[in-house]
Amino acid sequence: MKLKDVKTLITSGTIIIAVGLYLAFSEPKKDTEQTTSPEITDQNIEYKLTTDIAMDKTGNQLIDVKYLNANDGDTFNVEMDGKKERVRLLMIDTPEMNYNKGEPMPYAEKAKERTIELLEQAESVQLLFDKGPETDKYDRLLAYAFVDGVSLHEILLSEGLAAVRYVNKPNDTLEDELLEIQQQAEQEEVNIWAHDNYLQRDGFHPEEVTK
């Protein structure tokens, strides 16, 4: 064998060995694309107002509905039994959007966006009636709402985007639970509670935020 052939053989063998080592020890390329959407609720939080507690205290069962759209943080539309219904969340109030009346109140848009986010991303949306009337004078359904088994009331209250208001017997079964959740947000001065006197006995006072 000629010297030239020996050199060629050695060079080829070196290349083959190098390629083999690279394939054997190199890490596979990782897929960086996110295939899952972010969770709408923190799975590490232990929620207080569970579906079992709510159903046991009200004596009613959850009703599956299809979310359609929202008007503001505490009012939205659903399809129930093939019919479009407007829902007004029981015993909580979010700042007003003031449609056709001027600028939205502070935190009104944030509350609406959070409600839409929770309802749109939920795999299941359920309503729960209390012991009193199921509708108000505007024919809106008065109900508690749950997204994927978590209380929408609790999320809005705990994040300081709603307050306990319009409490009327006998649709007040879960008042104590809601007030306890609100109290924690008040102590932490979250969102609406970061401003002294924003919420007063007669409602929200935007001027207290813009002082």
Rank of each mutant, 00 (worst) to 15 (best):
A122R: 02
T58F: 02
N98A: 09
F204M: 08
P133Y: 01
A194Q: 14
F204C: 09
A185R: 02
N71F: 15
K112E: 10
A143Y: 04
R114L: 05
N100G: 02
L68Y: 08
L199A: 09
D64Y: 01
D196L: 05
G20Y: 10
N77W: 09
L118F: 01
F76W: 07
Q187H: 07
P28R: 14
I17A: 15
T135H: 06
P133C: 00
K57D: 09
A54I: 03
M80I: 11
Q61K: 14
E186N: 05
M55H: 00
L179F: 09
K137A: 12
K211F: 07
N69H: 10
K84I: 12
Y144V: 04
F25E: 03
I45A: 00
T135E: 11
K29L: 13
Y144C: 03
K7T: 12
N191R: 10
I192S: 08
T32A: 11
P104F: 03
L199V: 15
Y107T: 10
P133Q: 09
F146T: 01
I17N: 03
V150Q: 02
L161Q: 05
Y99K: 15
V78T: 10
A194E: 14
Y138T: 01
K211L: 13
N60W: 04
G59A: 04
V65R: 03
P28V: 11
E117F: 11
H195S: 14
D52C: 00
G20A: 05
M1V: 11
D139T: 10
K66M: 07
F129T: 07
T36G: 00
T210A: 06
E180I: 05
Y99F: 14
E175P: 02
T8M: 11
T50N: 01
E180D: 15
I16F: 09
S151V: 06
L118K: 00
N77L: 08
P28E: 13
L118M: 12
Q182K: 08
G160F: 08
A163K: 12
V164F: 06
Y166W: 09
V209F: 11
R86L: 08
L179M: 13
N44P: 00
D130Y: 08
D81K: 13
A18M: 14
